[in-house]
């Protein structure tokens, strides 16, 4: 039986994390930016689970649950904030939300 080596998981996780950063910086739609953050969190979860498997500990898998719960709470608040922004401005383009520039 073949095992996928730990490093593959970690590289995949790093790639996903980097994609999340790129999405956060280059995407213009607020929802997509928010999704990029979720992608980063899930990349972290993948690392946690892979490390937990490698270390033969259950802790890392529990941490992944913690992260999911917190991400869900964050999504609830975040989507509510995005909704109020949309109601007041009728746009989801991040560049147009700049009423406080100098």
């Amino acid at each position: 039986m073949h095992h996928v080596p730990l490093s593959w998981y970690l590289i995949l996780s790093a790639i996903l994390f980097a994609l999340g950063i790129a999405g956060f910086i280059y995407r213009k739609n607020i929802i997509t930016v928010f999704m990029s953050i979720e992608l980063m969190l899930n990349a972290v979860n993948l690392s946690f689970v892979a490390f937990a498997y490698q270390l033969r500990q259950v802790d890392g898998q529990i941490y992944a649950f913690f992260v999911m719960v917190v991400a869900a709470a964050e999504a609830a608040v975040g989507l509510a904030i995005i909704l109020t922004v949309f109601k007041n401005r009728k746009t989801l383009q991040i560049d147009e939300i700049d009423s406080m520039k100098l």
């Binding site: 928010f34 975040g78 904030i81 109020t84 922004v85 700049d98 406080m100």
Partner: peptide
């Protein structure tokens, strides 16, 4: 609104 949005996005990042 804008403050909350920016705080939220950059904070979660």
């Amino acid at each position: 609104n804008e403050a909350a949005l920016k705080y939220f996005l950059l904070g979660s990042f």
